[in-house]
Design a protein around this nucleic acid. Sequence first.
DNA 1: TATTTAATTTAGCTTTGCCTAAAAATAGTT
DNA 2: AACTATTTTTAGGCAAAGCTAAATTAAATA
Lengths: 219, 219
Amino acid sequence: MQGASSSREDYLKALYVLSTGAEGPVTTTALAEHLSMRPASASGMMKQLAEAGWVEHEAYRGASLTPSGERIALDVIRRHRLWEFFLVERLGFAWDQVHELAERLEHIEDAELINRLDDYLGCPDFDPHGDPIPRADGTVVDARPLQVASELRPGARAVIKGVVDSSDVFLRHLDALGIRLGIEFKVVERHEFDGSARVEGHGIWTLGVLENLLVVIQP
Amino acid sequence: MQGASSSREDYLKALYVLSTGAEGPVTTTALAEHLSMRPASASGMMKQLAEAGWVEHEAYRGASLTPSGERIALDVIRRHRLWEFFLVERLGFAWDQVHELAERLEHIEDAELINRLDDYLGCPDFDPHGDPIPRADGTVVDARPLQVASELRPGARAVIKGVVDSSDVFLRHLDALGIRLGIEFKVVERHEFDGSARVEGHGIWTLGVLENLLVVIQP
DNA sequence: TATTTAATTTAGCTTTGCCTAAAAATAGTT
DNA sequence: AACTATTTTTAGGCAAAGCTAAATTAAATA
């Protein structure tokens, strides 16, 4: 239930990430690729983790997490996402800069630290990428929250899921700009002076437009 | 000037700490003791660090930092103290709880992270123990600041260096309580409801007294 | 079904950083 | 100065985690 080395934690996390979505056990190769390592290394680590009781591993067939392994993975992910939240919301980092850093910070295992950090950040439910932050007890909410597009930072990609102002006039305006429900877009730049955004392939969207778009952030 | 492993950083930091105060090179045994390791290990590491150009090491004579080694040590110490400040001032940890944690955090080497953290904390000059925080350029202020005793947290030890109210009445009051310039004391407990403190061997000191004592925090 | 191809595991090597035990050098004592 | 005691270094091992290359197993094709 605890005491995994930094490296073991990485594998458990990768196993968790790769097994959500795909059905069945995770292949050695997929795991190795995900972690930028060689299959032989992943294979060796699976043996270790199986011995520790954190994964179920049938030779040549792939691996999957046991309940205790999943618990560790969720803990690591919780730490990762809380630190990402901190880095973006408090230190003002951009989205795409925080992953590597969080990858280092996540391996500091100290319940008190993480609980205090959680508190300090206001117990957020989602990280800046829109991914849910597992709770201390290991439960996870699996829904990405809607956000107002005006909150997007440069580099963010998002899918349009709804509008705040659904008046005809506004919807016609959106239509004229080529903005439709379901499209995905990427914010290239935000302009301090008027809040507008430069959107890849769409030119400039004004703050008025952004404030009325409900979006789901993409990973 | 950079790229030392976590372990090497520990040795460089220890070397820095042990060489300030004591004159001449640091002995292998002192180093090992400081890091809870065996002399043989310290000896081997000195060889490595000397090869890297971070320490000057004459066999059987002890080691001392080169300028580039000192630069790294100062960087590690800067990171350590900034994180300690964060843990105490923002997350509300008590003094004595933060050392080990900072010891882990200090090894995350990322200039942008540390500069942003520094900014976020208001570029503090001293950590919660009263030790100076080296600047990004490697300069260090070597004076402990005076603090008002009412700011002391439980567990803090401090030496009385002055008073705010130097009226006769007040000084006689202090005298009656056994409080004199230069004495060292330790705060055992603070009382929320009236701000008073229980002081080891001195009973209770009221907020009115504490607010008028200028102290230097002890390590 | 036999054979080829691809994936997985095993075997054996490397590095880092620690350890213990033995050897070497310094320091202290008579 | 010689001997002893202490400190420091060297030598040789061990564990973790990665790697390459070879062997094995499973999957795909003829």
